[in-house]
């Protein structure tokens, strides 16, 4: 998604390095202007080699930090992005890249949260359905009535319907 974003934002050549083995060598071969890496990736430390003059790129590289804009730096780090920039690259050129990267990251993050929520909801639904089935069979009642019963029991106990359903399913399994 970052790649798509960068392509939309301007004319960039983007290379993706998926293999972590020999990372610095791979980067040196490409000789890029900017390296974007997920700050959560431990291989980030290997990039520090590029920050020293003795490194494979044989020229100074610095981590770009716009000292005038601490909030921006903080956002970049919290978003899990950091930028290593060849000395001499103008900050104006970097900013749109970072903006895009951060925006994309937040979007991905939101989608991740949504996915987790959806999965959980589905799981709960399944358990509630099973609990309803148990009640319907045991007491010879309809689906709606079974749900009302479950909800009332949950309210009386100060629990969530899903938790109540889970307890019932486990108890029934034990009694089998």
């Amino acid at each position: 998604m970052i790649i798509d974003g960068l392509r939309e934002a301007g004319d960039f050549d983007v290379f993706v390095i998926g293999e972590e083995a020999g990372l610095t060598r791979r980067i040196a071969e490409r000789n890029p202007d900017v390296v974007l890496i997920d700050a959560g990736n431990p291989s980030r430390d290997a990039l520090e080699d590029l920050a020293t003059a003795s490194a494979p790129m044989r020229r100074p590289v610095a981590m770009f930090v716009d000292q005038t804009d601490a909030a921006m730096t903080k956002a970049a780090i919290e978003a899990g992005m950091s930028a290593y920039v060849v000395d001499g690259l103008r900050p104006e050129r970097l900013r749109p890249i970072l903006d895009v990267a951060i925006a994309r990251f937040q979007m991905v993050q939101k989608m991740r949260v949504e996915l987790v929520e959806t999965r959980r909801a589905l799981e709960e639904r399944k358990v509630i359905d099973r609990a309803k089935g148990i009640l319907m069979r045991a007491r010879g009642i309809g689906e709606e009535e079974a749900y009302v019963l479950l909800r009332k029991a949950a309210m009386d106990q100060g629990k969530k319907v899903a938790d109540m359903a889970q307890a019932l399913v486990i108890a029934t399994d034990l009694l089998k």
């Binding site: 700050a39 959560g40 990736n41 431990p42 291989s43 980030r44 430390d45 990039l47 520090e48 981590m63 601490a70 730096t73 903080k74 780090i77 919290e78 950091s82």
Partner: peptide
Amino acid sequence: APSWSSLRDMLSVGH
């Protein structure tokens, strides 16, 4: 922290 560079950054920004 996943790496020394990110730990250094966490210190830098006051996290």
